[in-house]
């Protein structure tokens, strides 16, 4: 493969990666609440990093670098959903969400049911499923 072709592919990948970073930024600005913003912070960003790493791999042209780039992306894949889940969970529990933007909420029903079950028995040792 000629050098020019590799350069062109690299340029396309880097522009794609930058576009994804822009997408994440626009999403963070325009989305209305915490949970929707977490979507913007997870998906485009992971793809953006992948495109940048591919561009790096193409330009460096050394095989020893490939595992490092791969490990870099795999750690991103492992950590991004965990952080998104933790932030989302904490946000949901502390009611940092806009209910008027939800068309349905099946978790709310469960939470309410659990709260109703716990409320009558004030004994903390009592198990909710026995009442």
């Amino acid at each position: 493969m000629s050098d020019t072709l590799i350069d062109v592919v690299t340029a396309v990948l880097m522009i794609g990666g930058a576009l994804m970073s822009v997408a994440a930024g626009v999403g963070l600005l325009r989305f209305p609440d915490l949970l929707t913003r977490m979507h913007a912070a997870t998906k485009p960003q992971v793809l953006g990093l992948l495109l940048f790493l591919l561009a790096m791999g193409l330009q460096m042209r050394s095989w020893v670098l490939i595992p490092v780039l791969l490990v870099c992306w795999i750690f991103m894949l492992l950590t991004v959903p965990v952080s998104a889940h933790m932030v989302g969970r904490a946000g949901y529990r502390t009611k940092h969400l806009r209910r008027d933007l939800l068309s349905m909420d099946e978790l709310d029903e469960v939470v309410e049911k659990a709260a109703n079950k716990k409320a009558p028995g004030r004994n903390p040792t009592e198990r909710p499923d026995e009442t």
């Binding site: 576009l19 997408a23 626009v26 999403g27 325009r30 989305f31 998906k43 992971v46 933007l101 349905m104």
Partner: peptide, 26 residues
Amino acid sequence: KLVVASFEVFWLSLTQGPRLVNAVVA
């Protein structure tokens, strides 16, 4: 699906933005 999802989030952020309607599904 990662590519599709990324562009979908981008598209939604541009077209819908603050008017987005979501759901919590079990």
